[in-house]
Amino acid sequence: MSNIELLRTIHFQQSGKRVLEVELNALAQLNQYINEDFSRACEKILHCRGKIIVMGVGKSGHIGRKIAATLASTGTPAFFVHPTEAGHGDLGIISSEDIVLAISNSGESDEMLPLIPMIKYQNILLICMSSNPDSRIGKVADIHLCIKVAEEACPMGLAPTTSTTATLIIGDALSIALLEARDFTREDFARSHPKGTIGRKLSLRVSDIMHTGNQIPYIRSDALLRDALLEIIHKKLSLIVICDNSMTIEGVFTDEDLRRVFDMKINLNNAKIADVMTQGGIRVGANILVVDAFNLMQARSVTSLLVAKDNTLLGIIHIHDILKAGVI
């Protein structure tokens, strides 16, 4: 049988759907583990004056790193320590005010068991996530969080699949329950995500990227339309703002207004901007988030917004500025 013929006999979609079915059925049973032990774990972590030290080996270690990262980014100081490294000196970074979250599906991790006596000797609270509360780690833990699943998605029952997904979800449940208990806000989240798209979305404000001063295309209401068009072309923001000498907004003239003027067959050389401008103009405050300004642009089908305080023009923000900032 050729490789191509062999591939035709393998039902990839059927296999994939079976994995989803096994894992979904198992995850539906996790609700029973959100119990008093879960509440106790949340309370202890919430009032912890130190850090949450997450430990795990193998696949549990990979999941543990993700849980520690999620905790840290949602207001709970946490980091991952590999049990092997802990046994060679890194255990010294753990203090009596910390909490250890030990992840081991069997609860019998050979790498973690030698650390337990030292953790207990320092009176460090130990939370264990395993499928067996009667395991050696489960028995000595102060709190046991069960992650038992009926079966792995692996047909041999060997590769950690469903069990690691369950562990990750219980970790997410811990993190979000604590986030809500702390009244963790978007601003708090932004402080721990200063870089990347998430950070920019939650922290970048209109005042950070708006055009100001000589970059603003504006003109007095007694100016001619042709002069306004030249200013629009020069400043390249697709509009011009009509203001008085104190920058009080009287109206705007945009690309859409120009189309309307052409339909009206107005003499472009003699017309005054005041005769063809649109009163007002869509405006935002300088302190709003750039992502909110973008959403307003989308809702109103415009590419620029006036930035104003009351009726005084402060600047202009264009959709190109938002795209350049990497917010969208």
Rank of each mutant, 00 (worst) to 15 (best):
I119Y: 00
E151F: 05
G61Y: 04
G157S: 07
C42N: 03
H82L: 03
I322R: 05
H211F: 06
G213C: 08
E152S: 11
A173Q: 09
N214E: 15
T303I: 13
D37N: 15
I249H: 04
F12R: 02
L179T: 10
G89I: 02
G196F: 10
R186H: 09
H193D: 07
I322M: 14
D188L: 01
L268T: 13
T248S: 13
P83L: 00
Q32N: 11
I93C: 14
G138M: 08
A69D: 03
V100K: 07
L30N: 01
L237G: 07
N269Y: 08
V19W: 01
H193R: 05
E151D: 10
G87L: 01
V327L: 11
K59V: 01
F12C: 06
R65L: 12
I94S: 06
I176S: 06
M210T: 11
F38C: 04
T212A: 07
V302W: 03
D263V: 08
A286W: 02
I322A: 05
I93W: 03
E97V: 00
H82Q: 08
D172S: 11
T76G: 04
I127H: 03
D183L: 11
S203L: 13
N123K: 15
G61L: 08
G87Y: 00
A177N: 11
I93V: 15
T197L: 11
Y218M: 14
A78K: 00
V291I: 15
M277E: 07
S39N: 13
E23Y: 12
T74N: 11
M112Q: 15
Q32P: 03
S131W: 02
N132H: 13
R40L: 14
N123D: 14
S96T: 14
I67R: 08
D98C: 09
A28E: 14
